[in-house]
C-alpha cells in the first residue's frame, strides 16, 4: 500500500525543491508549503499505511478492538501542521514587508545586508 504514497511524496519533494530554487520569494513560499505537506506525508507513510480505522478506542474496550492506524505519526503530524502554518505565515509576512520596503520579490535584488560591492575590510592595525 505504501508504493503509491512513495511516488506522490517523491513528487511533492521534487516540486517543493524546484520551487524553492526560484529567485522569486513568492515561489519559494509556495515551495515551503509543498515541502511541509511532503514531510507530513513522509512521516505518515513512515508509520505504515493502514486503511480506514482511526486510532480511537471504542466504548467498552480498554485497548483498540481491531488493528488501527498508527497513532504516533498522527500526533506528530498534527502539531507539525500547525507549526508549519505559523512558519508559513511568518515567511509570508517577511516577503510582504520586504516587498513593501524594497519593491521586489526577487531575492537577488535584495542586497541591503550583503551589498554587491562590499569594500575590503581594513588591513591596517
Amino acid at each position: 500500500m505504501e508504493f503509491p504514497f512513495v511516488l506522490l511524496i517523491g513528487l511533492f519533494f521534487a516540486a517543493a525543491v524546484y520551487l524553492m530554487l526560484s529567485k522569486f520569494l513568492v515561489r519559494v513560499l509556495l515551495g515551503v508549503v509543498l515541502l511541509g505537506n511532503g514531510v507530513n506525508l513522509l512521516l505518515f507513510t513512515n508509520g505504515r499505511i493502514l486503511r480506514d480505522v482511526p486510532p480511537i478506542i471504542p466504548d467498552g474496550h480498554d485497548v483498540p478492538a481491531t488493528l488501527t492506524a498508527n497513532p504516533l505519526p498522527q500526533a506528530l503530524i498534527l502539531t507539525a501542521i500547525v507549526i508549519s502554518f505559523s512558519f508559513f505565515a511568518f515567511l509570508l509576512v517577511l516577503v510582504y514587508r520586504a516587498y513593501q520596503d524594497l519593491g521586489t520579490d526577487n531575492g537577488n535584488e535584495m542586497r541591503l545586508a550583503e551589498p554587491e560591492d562590499d569594500p575590503l575590510p581594513p588591513t591596517g592595525y
Binding site: 505559523s86 505565515a89 509570508l92 509576512v93 510582504y96
Partner: peptide
C-alpha cells in the same frame, strides 16, 4: 491557537 492565528490574520 485561536489567539495567535487570529492575530496573524487580523494583522494581515
Amino acid at each position: 491557537v485561536v489567539g495567535a492565528i487570529t492575530s496573524i490574520a487580523l494583522a494581515l
